[in-house]
């Protein structure tokens, strides 16, 4: 390789590596701000902002969804298996909202620890299967337990 070309190759390498390191360090410093939501454990540990809105993410606990009498308010528990936060929400729920589903709720915590949500988003997993296969898998799992 001609020296001139080698010099350009080195420059290109340095450019890419330099930008990579700079951006990598910046992202490392911003780590917490890039995360979309806080987990119930982070809320329990006091890492989430108090009084100001933030996003809370977790699984809807089975059997915890209830309607508050004579209102459109719905309440459910969000868990990350270690800690649980109760969420109150009035409004339209996404089609994927159901018990056991991953949820991201936007809102804030009051003094009693109740999270009042202004928006509820559903997070789905990366599994794509026909219902029959999921049924078969569930059955197989149930038989394995017995």
């Amino acid at each position: 390789m001609k020296p001139k070309r080698r010099q350009r190759l080195v420059l290109v390498g340095l450019l890419v590596a330099g930008v990579g390191i700079a951006v990598g360090l910046a992202l490392l410093a911003l780590q917490e701000n890039i995360n979309l939501f806080f987990s119930p454990s982070q809320v329990a540990a006091g890492e989430a902002p108090v009084g100001s809105p933030f996003r809370l993410g977790g699984m809807v606990v089975d059997g915890s969804v209830s309607r508050v009498d004579q209102s459109l308010e719905i309440r459910f528990d969000l868990t990350d298996t270690a800690n649980t936060v109760t969420v109150a929400y009035t409004g339209i729920l996404p089609d994927l909202f159901r018990e056991g589903q991953g949820i991201v709720a936007q809102g804030s915590v009051n003094d009693n620890g109740l999270f009042t949500a202004t928006q509820v988003l559903a997070k789905h997993d990366e599994t794509y299967m026909p219902p029959e296969v999921i049924d078969a898998l569930d059955k197989a799992k149930a038989m394995g337990v017995q």
């Binding site: 299967m129 026909p130 029959e132 296969v133 049924d135």
Partner: peptide, 9 residues
């Protein structure tokens, strides 16, 4: 349905 083949479903 234990093994989802191409022609199943």
């Amino acid at each position: 349905g234990a093994r989802p083949g191409l022609l199943n479903y």
